[in-house]
Design a protein around this nucleic acid. Sequence first.
DNA 1: CAACTATATTCTCTAAAAAGAATATAAGGT
DNA 2: ACCTTATATTCTTTTTAGAGAATATAGTTG
Lengths: 114, 114
Amino acid sequence: MKDFVKVMKALSDPNRVKIVKMLQHKALCVCEIQAHLQIAQPSVSKHLKILENVGIVESTKEGLWVNYHLTDGSSSPYVSSILGNLKHWLNDDAKTREIVAKLPDIRREDLCKK
Amino acid sequence: MKDFVKVMKALSDPNRVKIVKMLQHKALCVCEIQAHLQIAQPSVSKHLKILENVGIVESTKEGLWVNYHLTDGSSSPYVSSILGNLKHWLNDDAKTREIVAKLPDIRREDLCKK
DNA sequence: CAACTATATTCTCTAAAAAGAATATAAGGT
DNA sequence: ACCTTATATTCTTTTTAGAGAATATAGTTG
């Protein structure tokens, strides 16, 4: 019960759902996600942590960058099922389209000073 | 996006998930649900309204009683899918078992003065 | 190891959600 | 019509979630 509710809660925020929809297309670092969502960097990190805690995303380090990507959902049947559904859900959603359209234009090389 | 988030939010509360699990077994009136959840009656009504607003439950009047039952989920693909999954999810959950076990013992005839 | 950069954590503030008390409404019985 | 009963709504309070500012950490480069 608790686990299920935690997964529902994790997906109860529009910004977090947007993150999932973005990561379906490619792995992204924090600064790229921030550029898409237009919220403060600490807020992005916090959202990512919530998604990570329920097994929706994972991260791998690449130098200073931390790349976030979707998991295969194997940690939980709830995550597995909903991530599966989200592959086709919301693809026609206006906000999803808007963000996906910008994906090619937002690159870490431009965002970060390196 | 908004609709999806609303469904997730509706299922982000343990009491509301318990209501869904109860209603899988039989339609219940407000006072029966209240007896199971052990929270104030207005809180039950409010939870039910949230579930009703996203198309998870419906109600029919029967005299003074209002019977709540699950919908077929036809109002939304999100509801449809998750209600389908919830038929098998959480059946082994301790709190679900506890509530389901009590279902036969809690009858409106005993709870209400009629 | 010192300076820099990307990310994480902490802290504080604001906003939203959940709970109960009191009250309102609607249906039934007398 | 009045009283009772089941449910809904409103109001207030407490708790929880989201946002940003400031700060801390970790990896990189010189």
